[in-house]
Amino acid sequence: MPIEFIGIAATQEISESGSATPVSGRDGVSTRTETGHASGPVVQPGYLRELARAHEESGFDRVLVAHSSASPDGFTVADQILTHTDRLGVLLAHRPGFVSPTLAARKYATLDAFHPGRIALHVITGGDDADQARDGDFSDKPTRYRRTDDFLDVVRKEWSSDRPFDHDGEFYRVRGGFSAVRPATPIPVYFGGASEDAVRVGGRHADVYAFWGEPLAGIAERIREVRAAAAPYGRDPRFSVSLRPIPAATEAEAWERAKEILRLTKERVGEVRKAFHLDHAEQRGSQRLLEYAAQGEIHDKRLWTEIARTTGAAGNSTALVGSYEQVAESLLDYVALGVSTLLIRGFAPLADARDYGTLIGLVRAEAERTGTAEPAGEAVVPV
C-alpha cells in the first residue's frame, strides 16, 4: 500500500521570532506552534494558498484542516485549499454534535463533488471539556463517544442510500433521510483517540485510525487493540502516526535545532497554556506520551519526547531528530509495523512544509526499493 503523507494547514502566518500568541489549538494538531507566534489577521487567504501549494510541491498527499472552538470554519478553508491546488487532498476535521449528521454528510459530499476523491473526514470526538463548553456542549466524554457512534451511522447512510431512509438512534432520529449528492467513491473516515471508548467506536467506523507519535512498541500495541476492536465488524483499518520531524543535513545540526526548539518552547509554554486554558490531563493519548517521556528522553533510535514533557503532551508533540536519512529511516520503521499514513508537521509551518519534500522523497524512494516491508537498521543517537 502506498505511503500517504499528511501535513497541516493554517490560515494565519506563524513566525518563529517574537512573543508567542497562539492561534488555536485542540485535538492533536493546532495552527500555532510551540516556538512561533501569529501575525496579521486570523484569516490570510494568500498565506493559506502559499502553504497549500508548498505542501503540494513537496509531495504531500493531504493537509489536515484542524478544528477547535476558536478556529475559522473548516469547510470554507478546505474549499479554498482544494480550489487553489491541483491534486492535494484535505483531511477535514469535524467534531460531531454541533451539525446534524445528515447536513454534515451533504457538506462533505458536496466538497467531494467539486473536488472528486480529494476530501476525507477526520472525526474529532473532543477530549477537552472546556473546549466543548465554548461551543455550548456540556456532555461528558463517554456520552460524546456514543454520540459519535450514532453520528457516523447516519453519515454513512446519507452517503450511501439511493432511497429515503429512517434512523432511530440514541442521539439522532431521521425520517426519510436522503441526499441528492453522494460521493462516487467512499469518502475515507479517519478517527483518533486512545481511550477504550475511542477504540471501541473507532474500531467500528474508522477507515484509518490515527495515533500520536509513540515508540514503536506502543504503536504495535495500539494497532493490535484497534484491529481486535474492528474484527467483529469485518473491518480492516489502515493506520496513521503523527510526528514532528526535526531533520537537518547532519545529525549534529538536527540536534542543535532541536535544542533551540526546546528552549523557545520552555519560554512560551506558560503563555500558550494560559491563553487557551489547555488541560490535557484527562486525555489518554496525552497520558501515554507523558508516560513515555517519564521513561526517557529518547526512545527507539531517535524519538524525542522533551517537547511532549514540556507542553504536557499538548497533542502531537513527539519528534524525530536526525539527518534527513536517519529521520526517513525511522519513519519507515513505523511503516514496517503496518502504518500507511504519516502525518508530519514541523515548528515553522511554511519553511518545514518546503523542507519536508526531501524527507518525503527519501522515504518513498526507500519504500519503493525495499517494498516498504523491512525495518531499517539500527543507528546511534547522541544525547
Rank of each mutant, 00 (worst) to 15 (best):
I14T: 11
E16H: 11
S17A: 07
S17F: 03
G18Q: 09
A20R: 12
A20V: 11
T21L: 09
T21M: 02
P22R: 05
P22M: 03
P22E: 05
S24V: 06
S24D: 14
D27A: 04
G28S: 01
S30F: 15
S30T: 01
S30G: 11
S30C: 04
T31N: 15
T31P: 00
R32C: 06
R32A: 14
T33G: 00
T35Q: 05
T35P: 07
G36A: 03
H37W: 10
A38G: 12
A38M: 02
S39T: 13
S39L: 06
S39R: 14
G40Q: 04
G40H: 11
P41V: 13
V42I: 13
V42G: 06
V42H: 07
V42W: 07
V42E: 10
V43G: 00
Q44M: 10
Y47V: 11
L48S: 04
L48Y: 05
A52S: 14
R53E: 12
R53D: 06
R53M: 09
R53W: 06
A54D: 08
E56I: 06
E57L: 02
S58I: 07
S58D: 10
G59A: 01
G59F: 01
F60A: 13
F60H: 07
D61T: 13
D61N: 13
R62T: 08
R62F: 10
V63L: 00
L64K: 00
V65F: 06
H67F: 13
H67W: 12
A70H: 13
A70R: 14
A70P: 01
S71N: 11
P72G: 04
G74C: 03
V77K: 04
A78Q: 07
Q80C: 14
Q80A: 15
Q80S: 14
I81Y: 12
L82K: 09
L82Y: 09
T83R: 13
H84T: 08
T85Q: 14
D86C: 06
L88I: 11
G89K: 12
V90A: 06
V90T: 09
A93R: 01
A93K: 00
R95C: 00
P96E: 05
G97P: 04
F98V: 08
V99N: 01
V99K: 01
P101S: 13
T102D: 10
T102G: 13
L103C: 05
L103V: 13
A105I: 12
R106P: 05
R106E: 15
R106A: 09
K107Q: 15
K107D: 05
K107V: 12
Y108V: 15
A109L: 07
A109Q: 11
T110Y: 05
L111T: 11
D112H: 04
A113Y: 05
A113W: 02
G117A: 11
G117R: 15
R118Y: 02
R118H: 08
R118F: 08
R118T: 12
R118W: 11
I119A: 03
I119C: 00
L121R: 00
H122L: 12
V123F: 11
V123K: 05
V123I: 14
T125A: 15
T125F: 07
